[in-house]
């Protein structure tokens, strides 16, 4: 069996730079995702403390989130915080797909698109 990994003191090859762009954009999406999720969870926790409520035992259904947010209930904020986190990898994968497409890397743009489609399909099936 050929061993194909190598360790060297050479600087990084220029051919890796396009991937660095993908990594940079994906990292920004991840940071935005967990910052947004954390902010929503904190708002939910603050509402729970100030209104002397307790953490809900169930998440709010999708169609009740917006009315609940308008009412200022804690549970919809907590639910949205959790859902924001769950959806972050999906948004990141879409971003990666678009970046590969922009770079003309059709093979990995197609593969990323397949992953996005599987993710969307699985989420859609599970929410029915």
């Amino acid at each position: 069996m050929n061993t194909r990994a190598t360790t060297s003191d050479e600087d990084e090859n220029e051919s890796f730079m396009p991937v660095d762009t993908v990594v940079g954009r994906a990292t920004r999406v991840f940071r935005a995702g967990f910052s947004g999720s954390l902010a929503l969870l904190i708002v939910g926790m603050v509402l729970i403390v100030t209104r002397k409520q307790s953490l809900p035992s169930h998440l709010v259904p999708l169609d009740e989130i917006v009315p609940g947010l308008i009412e200022g209930s804690a549970a919809p904020f907590v639910t949205l915080g959790i859902l924001t986190m769950i959806l972050t990898p999906v948004i990141s994968t879409v971003t990666i797909c678009l970046t590969f497409l922009q770079q003309g890397d059709r093979r990995y743009a197609r593969l990323s698109a397949v992953v996005v489609l599987i993710l969307i399909l699985s989420i859609s099936l599970s929410l029915r």
């Binding site: 069996m1 050929n2 194909r4 990994a5 190598t6 360790t7 060297s8 003191d9 050479e10 600087d11 990084e12 090859n13």
Partner: peptide, 8 residues
């Protein structure tokens, strides 16, 4: 060190 690899 810089580590380089190609998956097999």
């Amino acid at each position: 060190r810089i580590v380089e690899y190609v998956p097999e």
